[in-house]
């Protein structure tokens, strides 16, 4: 079986699932059991979405949300990967940070929102920091596990070949831990995406996908809410499949360190 036909098959299967879910929803929306304002039909939602895209509001909402999520996520990667690797390499770093991580991690990031609003006010700073908080721990823990899973033979081989500690880090440990690091990126982004929408509901003003949904509640605009939810789902899907999926394909799958997902 060729690669292309596998892709087509899996795309078709996904399409069938989505169509079925859409049909169920549409039947319910048209059944008259619920008020039309609460359960708009799919064409209505689509119309709203197109209108919001055309007048540019949706584009701005997406832009704000993406800015916050990417900023916070990048910070989390910049802190989580090096710190996780240092924890895996040095016992002292592990002893210091592991209890801290274990204590902070179980606190839901959204529980910090009121505190952060108090400290940083409403706006980008708070939402970005919430994203950072949500994404750091999965990144950190995966990088930490990744280092401990690096094959000791690679370290020995690199050691006899004269690798300095810095070279060892970049040329052996990071690529050697890459299956875990990529899993960490994935999980971290997922958490970040969930957190940004939640944080925007509470701590953003005027812009952002989370804020739109929350704002639409005031006016009973169910179509706006659903249109925003669809966009949130789509962007999440794009990142998961296209960004992280491709990253996986050109690295760990190409290197045979991880096998491709079964289609």
């Amino acid at each position: 079986m060729t690669n292309a036909s596998v892709h087509i098959r899996s795309a078709r299967r996904a399409a069938i699932t989505l169509l079925f879910a859409a049909a169920v929803y549409e039947t319910l929306a048209r059944s008259g059991i619920f008020a039309a304002a609460l359960l708009p039909t799919l064409p209505q939602v689509a119309q709203t979405l197109v209108a919001m895209l055309v007048d540019g509001t949706m584009v701005w909402h997406v832009a704000y949300t993406l800015y916050r999520v990417i900023f916070g996520f990048s910070l989390a990667v910049a802190v989580g990967v090096p710190l996780g690797i240092l924890m895996g390499r040095f016992r002292a770093v592990e002893n210091f940070f592991l209890p801290l991580a274990s204590a902070l991690m179980p606190i839901p990031s959204l529980a910090w929102v009121p505190v952060f609003i108090l400290w940083f006010g409403i706006g980008n700073t708070t939402t970005i920091l919430i994203v950072f908080y949500a994404a750091t721990f999965p990144m950190l823990l995966n990088a930490w596990s990744g280092v401990r899973a690096v094959n000791p033979l690679w370290l020995r081989a690199a050691g006899v070949m004269g690798a300095s500690e810095r070279r060892l880090f970049w040329k052996v440990i990071v690529p050697g831990a890459s299956p875990f690091i990529i899993t960490g990126l994935r999980q971290a982004f997922l958490r970040a995406w969930i957190a940004v929408v939640g944080a925007e509901m509470l701590a953003a003003s005027n812009w952002g996908l989370g804020w739109t949904i929350f704002d639409a509640k005031e006016f009973l605009n169910a179509d706006v809410m659903l249109a925003s939810l669809a966009v949130i789902g789509c962007i999440g899907f794009i990142f998961e499949r296209l960004v992280f999926g491709s990253l996986e394909r050109i690295t760990v799958i190409r290197w045979g360190m991880m096998r491709a997902a079964k289609d």
């Binding site: 081989a157 690199a158 004269g162 300095s164 040329k171 052996v172 050697g176």
Partner: peptide, 30 residues
Amino acid sequence: GQDRGVVFQDFAQLFPWRTALGNVAFGLEM
């Protein structure tokens, strides 16, 4: 030290993220 070269029994000793050439060039790169 680089005065010694080592070959292990385990095939997994090669760096999977480097091509054959990249693996062989590693010591010189260092």
